[in-house]
């Protein structure tokens, strides 16, 4: 039993202790290790178990080299292109689907089925997905492959094409695969957020005569702002660490011609290549960490909680204005 006025602060510490212990035991060492590796001369497996020492060529040598590493620079650009082009359609489609499936007025039959089915692409391992798509888009002079057959039938192309020597074709394939694997996931996350909204809010909107779109804009979106923030941040992190499909779809080094060589593919090649440059891999990871951190901070800032009150006011005001407008329209229509 707690007496009144007792501070509950200690429970904050107690409840977060398991996480902290888990972190200290399993993650601290690997992270510190990664951080330090970038300043060493660790190249080759034999160095892994030797004690670390500062890179004789200079403590920032590896970082300095990386800043002049064209392949790394290009891989950052590639990563952004692949991420942005799949994220925009992904979040749009996920939002629309989530809106449809949580709108009871639409009375969509079988929506339970659709919701469940749309997540399924995420269940298959990336390795299987990659095999499937590379088989689908394969080409040779005599055996054109299913995609070519289909596109020819649809009249999209005149003659079979070798998709995987074409940089932009390969990029679009990766973008499509990423979209296809993740829109269902994003949709489910958003739906779970929408289901957490108190039904009273929707009831109130109903009474106000809001239509489906208005409810979505003025009730749903503001209410799932926290979940949207989660979606943006995790997609940013996941997208900028995009790895398995670009690695597995072609020969493993972002072929053709680095078109899908993301930074994570670059890092993987450094860390697990024939002669691993652990220091380069670690430094590249840290650079990516900083980029992700800065971008996340911007997203957090743009969607920050402090504005919530103000935003709320704004929404209220807009709602009022809207209602007034409705009234005016109705009054006109009644004449």
């Amino acid at each position: 039993m707690k007496r009144k006025g007792v501070s509950y602060a200690k429970w904050g510490y107690i409840f977060s202790a398991p996480f902290a212990i888990g972190f200290l035991l399993f993650m601290l060492y690997p992270i510190v290790n990664t951080f330090l590796m970038g300043f060493t001369d660790m190249v080759g497996v034999a160095k892994l178990t030797e004690p670390m020492h500062v890179n004789p060529a200079g403590i920032f040598k590896v970082y300095n080299d990386l800043l002049h590493n064209k392949t790394f620079g290009k891989s950052i650009v590639t990563t952004f292109i692949l991420w942005i082009l799949n994220f925009i359609p992904q979040i749009t489609v996920a939002l629309v689907l989530a809106a449809w499936f949580t709108n009871d007025r639409l009375k969509i039959k079988g929506k339970g089925f659709f919701k469940v089915v749309f997540y399924l692409p995420n269940i298959i391992t990336a390795a299987s997905v990659a095999v499937l798509y590379s088989s689908f888009f394969q080409y040779s002079k005599e055996v054109m492959g299913p995609a070519n057959e289909l596109f020819m039938k649809l009249g999209l192309i005149d003659q079979p094409m070798d998709f995987f020597v074409n940089r932009s074709a390969t990029r679009w394939i990766v973008i499509f695969i990423q979209f296809w694997m993740w829109y269902g996931y994003t949709m489910i996350v958003l739906i779970s957020g929408i289901l957490g909204i108190s039904p009273e809010l929707f009831e109130a909107a109903d009474i106000d005569g809001a239509n489906g779109f208005q409810k979505f804009l003025y009730v749903t979106i503001p209410s799932i702002k926290t979940i949207l923030l989660y979606t943006f941040i995790t997609s940013l992190i996941g997208g900028l660490q995009m790895y398995d499909i670009p690695y597995l779809l072609t020969q493993g080094n972002g072929e053709p011609d680095g078109a899908i060589r993301t930074t994570s593919v670059f890092i993987f090649k450094q860390a697990f290549g024939n002669v691993p440059s652990y220091n380069v891999a670690a430094a590249a990871s840290m650079i990516m960490f900083i980029i992700i951190g800065i971008l996340s901070a911007i997203v957090f800032f743009l969607m920050r909680d402090k504005d919530e009150a103000e935003l709320h006011k704004l929404i209220k005001r807009q709602e009022k204005e809207y209602k007034a407008k409705l009234k005016a329209e109705k009054a006109q229509g009644g004449k």
């Binding site: 993650m27 060492y29 690997p30 992270i31 510190v32 290790n33 990664t34 590796m37 892994l48 992190i237 660490q241 790895y243 994570s264 890092i267 993987f268 860390a271 652990y278 891999a281 670690a282 990871s285 990516m288 960490f289 992700i292 951190g293 996340s296």
Partner: peptide, 10 residues
Amino acid sequence: MIPTQVTAIG
């Protein structure tokens, strides 16, 4: 936000 590939080695 820390990329996981190199930490996996550690």
